[in-house]
Design a protein around this nucleic acid. Structure first.
Length: 254
DNA sequence: ATGGCCACATCTTGTGGA
């Protein structure tokens, strides 16, 4: 089984990329973030033609998440229970007996922005949700754009980023709290190239110079970790014409 | 030189992203 996550930065623009990627990478489940489409505009038929079911919650312009899967999604939950939020950022569903959370963590914008305390409170609500889901479902994974680079090695230039959103100590504390539930960062289960990132700025030849951040993650429960045989970032996708600024992350389960 | 790109909305300029 393969599970994957990809922030597509507008599914309206990136639909051809996603369809081509699925044909080349027929994963069992793909979590999408930043679809930026209201539900009436979600291209479910195009995915169905490739043999994928879809569940989705979207809004105009911002946010929006979806889970595409070869088997139908079961027991779907939209949003974070107990956390009132207009923003469409979370879907939870069971695919082939694996409980998946597809999450688009808030960006936070800046440490002095109102969006920063929202991000921290959102992370706290996610910690509760992940803990509850993990307790109920031993085969559990949390996939998505976390908007957190967990360690300095996940940042192209840690000195330049110090004090910025995405790397601040309170955000990294939230990431470590998720690990504290017993979840493993699938990418770090394996030897990986140095300077591995999942997002690169569109500006300043960010990708060509590999000036990026690793902010897209797959965290998995002990039961899944034990069967995980690989986790990779598909950098090649970022080289294509009109790419998303994020690359897909894929985990393989035996 | 503190911005460079991209997507989106409302328009040809502003916001948000990361």
């Amino acid at each position: 089984m393969q599970i994957a996550t990809w922030n597509v930065n507008s599914l309206g623009v990136r639909l051809p990329h996603v369809l081509a990627w699925l044909q080349a990478n027929p994963v069992d489940a793909l979590c999408l973030q930043e679809t930026k489409l209201t539900d009436d505009k979600f291209p479910a038929a195009a995915f169905a033609e490739l043999g994928y079911h879809s569940v989705f919650i979207g809004q105009k312009t911002y946010n929006g998440v979806a889970i595409l899967s070869r088997s139908p999604a079961e027991d779907v939950i939209a949003g974070l229970p107990g956390f009132d939020d207009e923003q469409k950022r979370v879907l939870t569903a069971t695919i082939d007996g694996v409980r998946l959370v597809c999450a688009y963590f808030p960006n936070g914008q800046a440490l002095d922005s109102d969006k920063y305390p929202y991000k921290l409170a959102w992370c706290d609500a996610m910690l509760r949700h992940a803990g509850e889901q993990l307790a109920a479902h031993p085969r559990f994974a949390l996939l998505g754009d976390y908007n957190i680079a967990p360690e300095d090695r996940d940042v192209h230039d840690p000195a330049a980023w110090e004090g910025q959103v995405l790397v601040s100590p309170p955000e990294r504390e939230r990431f470590r709290a998720l690990l504290g539930l017993g979840l493993a960062d699938a990418y770090r289960l394996f030897d990986q190239p140095e300077r591995s990132f999942s997002w690169w700025d569109y500006r300043q030849l960010g990708f060509q110079k590999n000036r990026g951040l690793r902010i897209d993650h797959i965290l998995m429960s002990p039961a899944l970790r034990d069967s995980c045989t690989a986790c990779t970032i598909d950098r090649a996708e970022r080289k294509k014409p009109q790419p998303s600024d994020h690359a897909p992350v894929v985990a393989t389960l035996a």
